[in-house]
Design a protein around this nucleic acid. Structure first.
Lengths: 199, 199, 199, 199
DNA sequence: TATGAATGAGCATTCATTCAT
DNA sequence: CATGAATGAATGCTCATTCAT
């Protein structure tokens, strides 16, 4: 007669209930007590679903990332050319709609840099491999369609890294004032260079 | 009269004495007690020179960064062309000799992402503005010398960001296996694109 | 389901367990560790029930004060006249049975004078307002019964303050050797003056 | 050839230099460092003149008390009758001019209640014995002059204690709103009772 | 399954005091 | 006489985690 609970769903529910708390207070400020209270569960119950506070962030990033990817995929379908598609990707780093995810991603990266959590690394890998594959496919298509020069294939990872590097720089220094502008300037210039001459 | 101490020098000495401790143990593991003991001073004395553990990292990065810059400047003098110079810059992210600084820089970035410390941000800005200026000057020279196409000037910040983004990726994911190779591949390709045609 | 604890009762229990420790060692000497140990609880548990060491004193005074008031009320029922009743009140400041409470009250007053704690002030007010009301009622009755002159109503607060002032003086100077005697001498004289002439 | 310093005078100077610091920050907040800095001396020098922070308060109260007494003595010379004189005494507890001393006296009493410092007790005794003697003399004169009834002699200490008790109450509870009014009401009523009938 | 009371290791931080110069 | 650099004892407090119910 025991109540059967959908563990996966409840884990999601708990994580989402704490989203704003984490986004506003960071990972340090909110205690497990506060988190449990916010999710409307007991402290012990929290540990039934998460091994640690970090895992909550893990789950949260995972959920929002998936949502984000679905949104992006739809947008990509309507994109006209490769450059457009890359800009849609890059939107992650500056779009208003991705602001929440970005805050969490920032924390996530910070934690990953400080304590080289195996699981986090695995998750990031998983996450980014998918992106890289997307990217590579996307660029291959561009080359096939004669939109861009074949050299572009060698730059797939780099383009993504550029966006990431600019994002980190904009969050940790005052060097990059307008991330969107800077990034677009870079991509536009790169595409000029990559443009198939004679087209 | 009492002993007058060169506070600036002593701060450096304490920081350097703890370098290995921090590099090996990260920022979490070593307690202030351990740090003071390692530096051969009392716990109270530590607080006479540093407001917090974070400030120790701050000082440490500052010192090693300055040393690194001096080394780089010398190398740049002997560099033949712009691509070479950019690779010398990029060396920060993979050279064996910069390994220590890189570990500290990684922690530093992590902390900066997690707690948006005003002072850290200011220091990073200072640090990177210098780099960006170097970069821009360097690329302008390349353009002037007819080594690379004028479009390159629009990519200065981006190139640096690419290196940074790849570094972060290599430290937090398994996506980039050989940072040096990947980065060089990117730079080489970019320079092919940027190469002044007809030369 | 988890154990549900009567927080109020447990707080009382912890406080009472530490009574002697505080009475003998004052507020400075016993550390939180010692206090927790004495109460047979963990250090963390102490903070589950009290925000600070001061709050322990607060609770302790509160408990003993309530007990004391109950005892006093019973004694007052058997008192023959107003003077007698006032002396019963004053007993707080010299009776052997109130010695413990007095020691705590002394610390409490000391802390209140040094750090003007809002909560302590509120508690003292609560405590004393009750006393003043008692006093005023008591004196009004005395006037009604023609025991004492009507002027007495104007002296209610003052009489109480006299006892308090003498107590503080006896604890901080050598000026008042025998508090009981001095206080009784004062009250007796005052009652002679207040006695309704011609009775 | 050593500079000869008037130790007594310098001690006074240091104490007075810190008067405002102590009055505003209490005894806890200002560190010895801050105190030394405020007095324009080195930390070591502070210990040349004072055994502890408490001794600084001791000195300060002592200085201001002496000043206050001189002022009071002058006022007493011009007073017309005993009641007037008692009110001049009581002024200590509510006069605007005594505000500083009162703040220090409050701390002093608090410390005396918390740690029964022998020296503080001795000083308080000395201080109050003088007051009591004054009081007793004052009341004896009142009796001799037929101003007040002979019973008053038995109330000398009590009257002083009343003022003190009301002061403590006004500082630690909300029970006494207007100390001056309450105290005067008490004294006036008492003097009515003490007034020599038939005069 | 859910809970929340109990825990205590663990650490940063303060600051009065000393003493070599 | 004066100093201020050096010290380290001393302690309050947090909070993730456990586990009995």
């Amino acid at each position: 007669m025991a109540i059967i609970v959908d563990k996966t769903q409840k884990k999601r529910d708990i994580a989402l209930a704490c989203k704003d708390l984490i986004i506003k207070g960071g990972m340090q400020e909110p205690t497990i007590s506060k988190i449990a209270q916010t999710a409307g569960i007991g402290k012990g119950t929290f540990y039934e679903y998460f091994k640690s506070k970090d895992e909550l962030l893990f789950e949260l990033v995972s959920i929002l990332m998936r949502e984000h990817n679905i949104k992006i995929e739809k947008q990509l379908e309507n994109a006209e050319n490769t450059k457009e598609k890359i800009k849609i990707f890059s939107g992650f780093f500056y779009d208003k709609e991705s602001a929440d995810l970005r805050v969490l991603y920032k924390m996530f990266t910070g934690i990953s840099l400080l304590h080289s959590h195996k699981e986090m690394m695995a998750f990031q890998t998983e996450c980014f491999d998918a992106y890289y594959l997307w990217f590579e496919k996307l660029i291959e298509e561009g080359v096939k369609n004669n939109e861009i020069a074949p050299e572009a294939t060698k730059m797939a990872k780099g383009i993504f890294a550029t966006a990431k590097g600019m994002f980190i720089a904009s969050e940790t220094t005052h060097s990059i004032v307008d991330l969107k502008e800077e990034l677009n300037k870079y991509i536009n210039t790169l595409f000029e260079l990559l443009s198939v001459k004679g087209q």
